[in-house]
């Protein structure tokens, strides 16, 4: 049991972090909060991958004459790409939020839906 916790506790913390982001994405009405949730979710995924790259006793994956074991460089390279892509998606999401705020005067999801319903009813009347 102790071995199980010692070997896996870091994965569980990443899962808790991911679920905080997930909850923000589905439960928060504010669109900025949803973007923050996406960012936290992505950070948890990056942590998960990079921790898989760790080898006990390994050094940073840069050639060094005293090193015997290196950490796995592949997840690091993949997550470098991932971080940059996550910033790109954040930028597009925030630009969309600015446009939505300009059109509706609010960035609360429930208010936007209310306004949309009102517009539909106005059209039918």
């Amino acid at each position: 049991m102790i071995e199980l916790v010692a070997g896996k506790y870091n994965y569980w913390i990443y899962i808790v972090l991911m679920m905080i982001g997930f909850y923000a994405m589905i439960a928060k009405e504010n669109l900025i909060k949803k973007v923050i949730g996406i960012n936290i979710f992505q950070a948890a995924v990056f942590l998960f991958y990079v921790s898989m790259a760790k080898v006990t006793g390994g050094t940073a994956p840069i050639e060094w004459h005293e090193a015997h074991v290196y950490d796995n460089p592949l997840p690091h390279a993949l997550m470098l790409t991932g971080i940059v892509v996550s910033v790109s998606t954040t930028a597009v999401a925030l630009a969309l939020i600015i446009r939505i705020y300009g059109a509706y005067g609010t960035m609360e999801e429930d208010r936007i839906l209310e306004i949309n319903e009102g517009r539909d009813m106005g059209d039918t009347l």
Binding site: S51, A60, D71, H76, V84
Partner: peptide
């Protein structure tokens, strides 16, 4: 975790640019 390249990118892009974008 010895992921120094990722740490650089996170500190500049993740902590820097994302925060700037959010504030903007």
């Amino acid at each position: 975790l010895n992921a120094v390249d990722v740490a650089f990118t996170e500190a500049s892009v993740g902590a820097g640019i994302t925060t700037v974008l959010m504030i903007a």
